[in-house]
Design a binder for these strands. Structure first.
Lengths: 176, 176
DNA sequence: CAAATTATAAAACAAAAATTTTAAAACATC
DNA sequence: GATGTTTTAAAATTTTTGTTTTATAATTTG
């Protein structure tokens, strides 16, 4: 997973993977059929084990606090020097290259995030934390859009010092 | 350029390139040394011929109108169904894979954009189009951050109908 | 514990990719 | 127009990659 995450599907060879994991080549092929299958399972593992815990803050606090915490954690991650982006979103620029199942998994992943945020924003609006004139669906899109931004922007080693300020701008845009 | 743009460096083979361009393999290697060299020249060509014209609106109108027009054109592009993102930014998630010269070129490209935007925003502030409490440098970063967002977000075939609304949110965040 | 199944290491294969070579064709120069 | 240089087409070479096979070792099952 780490190699797909850091280098992307195409630049990670099966040889690299078996060397790194110590997995047996034949067993690997028996289990996952081919490189595509392995990649797909990697995406599922990522979603279940890496991302799911990070969604907890949104599920536990489906309101402005949850959204704030989530965006904060994304931005903090993006500001780290070893930041690798998001395994899923990293591959959006390579949709032709990965299989259709993987493309679909990535889409579902982003939609899930968007709907979690939307729920939280609807509650935030009810709580008076975002203005009544705002459309929670649009703002949820905007948040996901910004997560995409962070995933790419965080790859610039320089520019990182600006990220805390970006967090403020994004939150300001939400609150309105 | 189109192939690198659509599929990325690693998924575009030299064989594909000579087939598509009709270029002779030996001539190509004589001219560009290797695939890395060809890619680097492709990036420079992209910057000079694809991007430079799109920066005109910022150079001609270094003010809120220029910024608005630029962001508008990015968002409109991202909403197209055949959207390929940005040749440069697409490769941010593959910095290990492309050569160091290419990485540097991408960084310079993004910095140039950021400074053009900053100049325009400084003027916009002078014109009273953005509040005196805002920091143009931060907002310029935010714009570049949003361009990164658009580059990835525009890869979702669904979700495109939301992009006009995102444009409004981004401009709203600028104006404050 | 013997028989059947499964896992593993290692080598083998096949296809694709990047790059180089070779020899003929085109071009430029004197 | 002969001579030297550059370009081109085609095949050859070298790596790398994805995948399969084979033979041996380990594990499970009856």
């Amino acid at each position: 997973m780490g190699m797909f995450w850091r280098d992307g599907y195409k630049a990670t060879s099966v040889g690299d993977i078996v060397r790194e994991t110590g997995l047996n080549t034949a067993s690997m092929y028996k289990e996952f059929v081919d490189k595509d299958g392995l990649f797909l399972e990697t995406l599922k593992h990522y979603r279940g084990h890496v991302i799911k815990p990070r969604y907890e803050m949104l599920r536990d606090n489906p309101n402005i606090a949850g959204v704030e915490a989530f965006i904060g954690s994304v931005m903090t991650g993006a500001a780290r020097s070893e930041y690798k982006g998001c395994l899923m979103m990293n591959h959006l620029s390579q949709k032709h290259v990965i299989g259709p199942d993987a493309v679909q998994e990535i889409g579902a992943f982003c939609s899930e995030l968007e709907s979690l945020i939307e729920t939280a924003l609807i509650n935030a609006q009810r709580d008076g934390d975002i203005g009544p004139d705002k459309d929670p669906a649009v703002l949820a899109s905007f948040v996901v859009f910004c997560v995409h931004g962070a995933v790419l922007y965080g790859r610039h080693y320089e520019k990182k010092r600006m990220i805390p300020n970006l967090y403020d701008v994004v939150m300001g845009a939400l609150r309105g």
